[in-house]
Nucleic acid binder design. Structure first.
Lengths: 94, 94
DNA sequence: AATGTATATTTAAATTTAATTATATTGGAT
DNA sequence: ATCCAATATAATTAAATTTAAATATACATT
């Protein structure tokens, strides 16, 4: 597939990263909390650590969330407002 | 997986359906045109008919687009404003 | 009724993604 | 230095998606 616009790929990748139940739940949890550690998220969603870490890495790669490391803890938060807007519209449109 | 909220699943499914390059291009094309036949879309994207039809069916299933059949033609259009909003925000956020 | 056009569905193969389990890294406390 | 807690990464397998090709349906025209 030659010459597929880069913006399209990036936008698709972003939306795809949001389109997974666990990742969506992570985003919704982060929307309520301004910042959470991985342990917080694991506890909040009751999902195993490696699965959470995997999905966090996918969201990180797509600039949906950002991390701040302090000691051995990683504090995650929503990257920017547009993510919240997208999820909000999607969530309330159905 | 017990007791996973239905709204979350639906929202994830919606966003996932938007998160594919071909489907995104279909939506962008429909955003410019108010209504297009399958043939129009095939021509516009230069992608084979069965592939386009498949992705149209996925978008239909998620209420992203709607169809109006007239004779042997199917006229497709964006289902509602929220779809455009989501794609717009996603597209311009990167 | 046979043909052509527009679109949809099915099937099989290839590719991607996800979940699971195991292992690794890093930093602080003892 | 050793141990534990917090997090990340890797490897394996399982499951879901995507593509491609073939086939089917439905309508209009001849």
């Amino acid at each position: 597939m030659i010459n597929q616009s880069n913006s399209i790929s990036k936008t698709a990748s972003l939306l795809k990263s949001l389109g997974h139940p666990i990742r969506l739940r992570i985003i919704i949890a982060l929307s309520r909390n301004t910042s959470m550690t991985v342990t917080d998220i694991i506890y909040d969603l009751s999902i195993d650590q490696p699965i959470i870490s995997l999905h966090l890495s996918i969201l990180r790669k797509n600039n949906v969330i950002k991390v701040k490391k302090e000691g051995k803890k990683s504090f995650y938060s929503i990257h920017d407002k547009s993510v919240k807007q997208i999820v909000n519209i999607a969530y309330h449109s159905r």
